[in-house]
């Protein structure tokens, strides 16, 4: 549950997670990737330096999409990613810093124009292809950082290449995360406190999330090094698709990276 916790008799507070949000209201191009706690994010257009596996990925580019500028073409959206980092503790406890007002959209196509998707693709004019304001999508007032990957021929349908694209995008995001770790917590624009609470005597409930686990663009990673991250993640496919239990706070702290 969220907020200051007042425990009733018999209840037990297992752990606390604090998510501090820093709102970004100015995103621009510049010479270095920079973010500050006063709401400014600067983007370096050169992302080719994050490209390691050239057999999988031919090139990549990054672009700012400002609020109200959704009238442009986008390749198929592989994922939408919040920019979050651990400041204290592991995923699910301690302190996380996250940005609001800006989200990364990872898109993909191959050199022959084949869109990276598994079951229907979302390329087209962005405003016709993105439903704003859902839990998993930006609102119309948010900035979007479009991270567009061009795969080598046929590689957009290969699992290892898709994972590579996520890792490349993650290495880019990590440059912002490293700066966010040093933000003064008091400068946050929102502070959310979450507690995993045991409530003896109440009905015992479990949430089961059935997630993708069959291959390229039908995959789910867990346990990355950073919240909503890719590096260090393990694929549910490699874990035999077997059920894996996470705490409510681990889940809400970004223990899942969606790869479908």
């Amino acid at each position: 549950m969220e907020g200051d916790v007042v425990l009733k008799q018999g209840e037990k507070d297992l752990r606390r997670l604090v998510i501090k949000a820093f709102h970004i209201d100015c995103v621009d191009y510049g010479t270095d990737n920079k973010v500050d706690a006063q709401g400014r994010l600067i983007l370096n257009r050169d992302v080719e330096r994050f490209l390691i596996n050239k057999e999988a990925i031919a090139s990549a580019s990054v672009k700012i999409i400002r609020p109200g500028e959704w009238d442009l073409f986008t390749n198929s959206m592989m994922d939408i990613i919040p920019i979050s980092t651990k400041v204290l503790g592991k995923i699910g406890e301690g302190i996380t810093h996250t940005l609001t007002g800006v989200y990364v959209i990872l898109t993909g196509v191959d050199v022959n124009g084949v869109q990276t998707a598994e079951f229907g693709s979302s390329e087209g004019i962005l405003k016709e292809r993105l439903y704003p304001g859902r839990a998993g999508t930006p609102s119309e007032d948010d900035f979007i950082i479009s991270f567009d990957v061009t795969f080598q021929a046929g590689m957009g349908q290969k699992r290892h290449a898709v994972t590579e694209a996520h890792r490349m995008c993650d290495a880019f995001i990590q440059e912002f995360r490293n700066q966010m770790k040093k933000f003064r917590g008091d400068d946050c624009t929102e502070r959310h406190e979450y507690h995993d609470i045991v409530r003896p005597g109440k009905k015992r409930v479990l949430i089961i999330k059935q997630v993708a686990g069959q291959g390229a663009m039908y995959d789910t990673h867990l346990f990355a090094d950073e919240p909503s991250g890719a590096a260090g993640g393990r694929s549910i496919i490699d874990m035999g698709n077997m059920p894996v239990l996470v705490t409510p706070n681990e889940y809400r702290d970004g223990i899942i990276r969606s790869m479908q």
Partner: peptide
């Protein structure tokens, strides 16, 4: 507060 949420179980969708 009427519920004791124990956790979230993540299960894959194999072929």
């Amino acid at each position: 507060e009427d519920l004791d949420l124990m956790g979230v179980l993540i299960v894959g969708t194999p072929d």
